[in-house]
Design a binder for these strands. Structure first.
Lengths: 331, 331
DNA sequence: TTGAAAGCGCTAACAC
DNA sequence: GTGTTAGCGCTTTCAA
C-alpha cells in the first residue's frame, strides 16, 4: 500500500480511502491511485485491515458438514456458498466424518482464523464449549443436527415426521412387518428417525419386533449384510425402511442379490442418486439440503446484520416421492 | 494475548513462545501460561501473527472446482481437504460454474485473503493474469483443465486416451456408427475427449459422420433431447459415447424413454452414480478424482516446502469399467 | 480533501 | 529463560 501511495504521489491514507471507496477524495486522485494500484498488481490484505477495523469482519465463514464428498453435504455447501458469494464472503469448508475430535479441531481452526460466523454439523455429546463464542457475539447456526448444552439457531429436517410418513406409507400399502435399518444412535438424525418409526408402528397398533430393528449401519456394505440377515429370518420383513442414503443403497444391493427387489417393499430416507432409473424405482422421503443451506446462511447473515432476538428453530419439511419400490404389496 | 500474559504474570513474548511451542521456556512457565489461556478461552489470531511472521504463511489454501455440488469436484475437494488437514491448513472452496468472471473473482478473493497456495479449475481462455502471483512464489496447481498463457503444475485426467479407449471398446464390439455427445468445446476436457473420439474413429478407418456429433450439451435434459433426435435419424447410431457424467445420465433417460436401452450400446466418460445397479449396468471410463485432488495438494505443499524445479504435468489414468451397456452388439 | 500518528495482535531481533 | 522494542499492512482518530 505504501508503494502504491509513493507511486501515486499521495499519502497512504488516501490510498486506503480509494481502495475502500470512501468519500472525500477528488476524482483525479482516485484515478491516479487506481492507476498506480493496477500497475503494481496491488491486492489489499484483508487481514491486516481487519486487525484495526472497527467491525473486525474477515469476510469469512466456517462451514462444517458431514463430508464434503457426500451429496447431501455438498448440496448444503453449495447453497451456503451461493449466499456467501453475494456478500463477498469466502467459505472454509470442512468434513466432520462423525468424529468428535474433528468437530472440535475444525471449530478451533475456524476460530483462529477469525471467521465471522459458524455453520456447524456436530457429533460431540455437547456443544457447551462454544458458549464463549456465543457470548462474544459470533453468529452460530447448527444444521442437520440439534446441538445440546447450548442454545443457538438450528436448521433441521423434520426427521421424525419424515420417518413417520415413510412408515405410514408402508402401513397403508398393507405391510405389518416393516424393518428399520439405521445409523448409529449417537447421531441425532438417526435417533429422530428411529423415534418416528417406532411411534408410527405403535400408533398403528403394531408392537415393534426387535429382530427387525438394526442400528449402527454406517455404510452400504453393513446395510447390505443386515438386509441379507433379515431376509434369512423364518418370518422375514415384507418391507424395509432405510433410514439413510447409504443404507438405502445397501438395501437395494442386497435385495437385488437375493432376487427380492420385486417382492420386498423399500422406502428410503433421503433421496438416492438415479433413484428414478432403477428397477423398481425407489420411493423415498426426500430432504431439501439446498433449503437447509440457504436458511442457515440467511440466519448467520441476519445476526451479522444486527438481528438480536432469541435463537430460533427452522424445520425444513420432507417430501414423499412415490416411485414404485414403496408400493409393493406384502406377499 | 496481553490479557493472558497479565493473568499468567509473564511477558507477552513468553505467551507467544508457549503458543508456538518454541523452546527455551521453563516447564512451570508453560503450565502457568496454558492455564491462563484456558481460563480466558484464548484463541490466537493467525492473521495477526502472519503479518509479521517471516514465512508469512496463513495456513490457508484456495480451491476452485467445477461446482462443490458435483460428485467429481466433491471428490477432488475431499482429497485436498484430507491432505490439508494433516498440515493444519484450512481450505477455501469455491465453485466455478464454468463462468469466466467467477474464475477471476474467486482467485482475487483468495489472493486478498493471502492464501498460501492455489488449486484451480479454469474456464478463461488465458490464465496469464496469474503471472504476477507465480513470480511472487505462490504455488499454483491447475486441476482437470490445462491452463494457457502460463506454465504451472497441472494435474489432468488422460482425456483423449480415455475417450479413445471408450471408442475402441465399441469398435471391438462391432459398432461403426458411434455417436459423440459432448459438452461445450470451450471446455478443455470436452475438446480433448472429442479429439480422442475422432482420432480413434479415423484410425479405425471410419469417417466421422457430423450428424452423429453433438457438442454444447451442458446438462441431462439437453443430452436427452440430443439422443432422442439421433434415434429418430434414418440411419441412427448403434452406439453412443457420452463424453461426460450428466450427458451419460441424459442418454440413459432418453434410451429408456425410447425403449432402446437394450439395443443401443452406451459408454460414458466419468463414472455415474449407481451405474452398477441400472439395467443394463453402465459401462464407463472412470476418472480418479481422489487421486487428482491428492496429487494437486501434494504438488502445492512440495512447492511450499521449497521444491523449485520447473512445472510438471501429472496425468492420472482412467479405468474402463465393463458393466453391460457398452457390450451390446450392433443390431 | 488530505495526511501524520497511533495502534490492531502478533512475531523478529536483540537485550537482559 | 525471559522481557523489550520495533514493525507487519492496514484503519482509526484527529489535525491541517
Amino acid at each position: 500500500m505504501k508503494n502504491v501511495a509513493d507511486l501515486a504521489g499521495v499519502g497512504i491514507k488516501t490510498v486506503s480511502r480509494v481502495i475502500n471507496n470512501e468519500p472525500y477524495v477528488s476524482e483525479e486522485t482516485v484515478a491516479k491511485v487506481r492507476r498506480a494500484a493496477e500497475q503494481l498488481q496491488y491486492q489489499p490484505d484483508v487481514h491486516a485491515g481487519n486487525l484495526r477495523r472497527s467491525d473486525r469482519r474477515t469476510g469469512t465463514l466456517g462451514l462444517l458438514v458431514g463430508s464434503v464428498a457426500n451429496p447431501f453435504s455438498a448440496a448444503v455447501h453449495r447453497a451456503v456458498e451461493d449466499a456467501a458469494l453475494a456478500r463477498h464472503v469466502a467459505v472454509f469448508a470442512s468434513s466432520l466424518d462423525d468424529d468428535p475430535e474433528r468437530e472440535v479441531s475444525s471449530v478451533e481452526a475456524f476460530l483462529r482464523r477469525r471467521v465471522d460466523g459458524l455453520i456447524l454439523t456436530t457429533i460431540q455429546s455437547s456443544q457447551a464449549y462454544l458458549g464463549a463464542q456465543v457470548e462474544q457475539g459470533i453468529p452460530l447456526v447448527f444444521v442437520d443436527r440439534r446441538p445440546s448444552g447450548i442454545v443457538a439457531d438450528t436448521v433441521l429436517t423434520d426427521n421424525a415426521e419424515g420417518a413417520a410418513r415413510a412408515v405410514e406409507h408402508l402401513l397403508r400399502v398393507g405391510h405389518r412387518r416393516i424393518a428399520y435399518l439405521g445409523d448409529s444412535t449417537d447421531i441425532f438424525t438417526a435417533r429422530e428417525r428411529k423415534r418416528g418409526y417406532l411411534d408410527t408402528l405403535r400408533h398403528g397398533g403394531i408392537a415393534p419386533d426387535p429382530r427387525l430393528i438394526v442400528d449402527g449401519l454406517g455404510d452400504e456394505t453393513l446395510a447390505a449384510e443386515a438386509v441379507a440377515s433379515l431376509l434369512a429370518l423364518d418370518d422375514p420383513p415384507t418391507a424395509i425402511f432405510g433410514a439413510q442414503n447409504l443404507i438405502t443403497i445397501g438395501a437395494i444391493m442386497a435385495l437385488r442379490a437375493a432376487g427380492a427387489s420385486a417382492r420386498v417393499a423399500l422406502v428410503g430416507f433421503d433421496d438416492v442418486p438415479m433413484a428414478a432409473l432403477l428397477e423398481p424405482a425407489v420411493t423415498v422421503i426426500a430432504q431439501d439440503p439446498a433449503s437447509i443451506g440457504a436458511i442457515a446462511a440467511r440466519l448467520v447473515f441476519e445476526r451479522l446484520d444486527g438481528f438480536d432476538e432469541p435463537a430460533r428453530d427452522f424445520i425444513v419439511p420432507t417430501r414423499l416421492i412415490v416411485r414404485g419400490s414403496g408400493e409393493i404389496a406384502p406377499g
